[in-house]
Amino acid sequence: MNIPAVLARLEEISARIKKLGAEYALRTERVQWQCGRGKRARERARWLSRLVQSTAGETSKAVALLRIALPG
């Protein structure tokens, strides 16, 4: 198994997920909704953003541990 390549790919995935997570909230915020519906959708998107970014954080942390656990 090519560990460096796998770890590099995991880092890419983590960064991409993090970016998508942040965009969920930003994009939802930018669009004009009806008041009640907008509030609900924005809250949902903010929660999703936090969740996706925490997933990215877990992946990133896993990569850091793997670098120590599987050198080379």
């Binding site: 995991l10 997933t55 877990e58 992946t59 942390k61 896993a62 990569v63 541990l65 793997l66 120590i68 656990a69 599987l70």
Partner: peptide
């Protein structure tokens, strides 16, 4: 241990 933890983290993700 780090290796097991990392696998566990990926599993959670």
């Amino acid at each position: 241990n780090f290796a097991y933890d990392s696998i566990q983290l990926l599993h959670h993700a």
